[in-house]
Every structure is written in structure tokens, then in C-alpha cells.
Amino acid sequence: MTMNNHINYVEFAAADLAATEQFFKQVFAWQFEHYGPDYIAFSNSGLDGGFFRSELAGNTVNGSALVVLYSDELEQTMLNVKQAGGTISKDIFSFPGGRRFHFIEPSGNELAVWTAS
């Protein structure tokens, strides 16, 4: 498959790079590489990307795009998010094709997790 014209990388703002890194390692087993004090790249996530130091955060209320992750065990993933210090911003709800919840990670970015079951 060609990479031409496909989404290849995503970047997020993060006020607390260390807390954000620890959260995504703990909950989703992402791997990280540091590029100086203001940038960390992640992999093992389905789509590689990074976090850059910023006081801003992405939230759908402010018109930000929503990155949606997949889980085979939605309830367990929601519990893991809570235990790692994330905040549930929308509890599990059904939609045509599955169920999902939204969460806020330690630097304030909103993401979602869905499952087909």
C-alpha cells in the first residue's frame, strides 16, 4: 500500500510531557523516544506521532479533531484510564456500529476509545 496522501503522523500539545508519557505507557503500552526537553515521539499506537510542550490542549468543545483508539475490552480500558489518572469526559455510550467513551489525559487532550461489541 502506498503512503502517498495518507495520514502518516499526528502531534498533540502537552503541558506535562512526563505525565502524558507515563499515562499512555501505562494504559495503552505505547513506546516513547525523547527528542530534547520539549518533544517526545510515540510508537506502537497504530499511528505514530508525538507530543510537543505547550500549555494548550485539544478538546472537541474547542473544535479539535478527536482521535479515537480501539479496544477489545472497553470497560477494562476505561478502568485503566481512570487508574492511570485520566478523566472520563463522556461515559460509555452506544452508537451505530459499537460503543465508546471519551477521556482527558493528564495534559488535557481529549481522546476516545471504541469497540465494535
Rank of each mutant, 00 (worst) to 15 (best):
L79E: 12
V113W: 05
G58V: 00
G86K: 03
T87N: 10
H102S: 14
N80S: 15
S43P: 01
Q22M: 08
R100S: 13
A65M: 12
Y70V: 11
E110M: 05
D48V: 11
V27Y: 03
A84S: 06
S71G: 06
K90E: 15
A18K: 14
E21Q: 15
K25W: 02
G50D: 11
M1T: 05
N59T: 15
I7N: 01
G46C: 05
N8V: 07
R100W: 13
F12D: 06
E75V: 13
R99K: 15
K25Y: 00
M1W: 00
W114N: 09
N62S: 14
Y9F: 15
A116E: 08
M78S: 05
P37K: 13
S71A: 14
R53K: 15
A41T: 12
D91P: 04
D16N: 15
Y39S: 08
F32N: 01
Q22R: 13
W30G: 01
D48G: 07
P106A: 10
Y39P: 01
E75F: 07
H6N: 06
N4H: 08
I92L: 05
F103M: 13
G97H: 10
G46F: 03
V81W: 08
R99I: 02
L17D: 02
V61H: 14
A18E: 14
E21V: 14
E11K: 07
S117T: 11
A29H: 11
A84Y: 03
K90P: 04
R100V: 00
N109F: 09
K82Q: 14
A41V: 12
I40D: 02
G108T: 05
F23M: 10
N80G: 11
W114V: 02
H6V: 02
P37N: 13
A112N: 04
M3K: 01
L111V: 01
S45R: 02
L74K: 04
V68Y: 13
L111R: 01
V113C: 10
Q22D: 12
T20C: 07
M1N: 03
M1A: 10
E55D: 15
E73G: 06
F101G: 09
F24H: 13
H34P: 03
F103H: 13
N80F: 03
V27T: 10
I40Y: 07
Y70G: 08
Q26C: 02
N109D: 08
F24N: 05
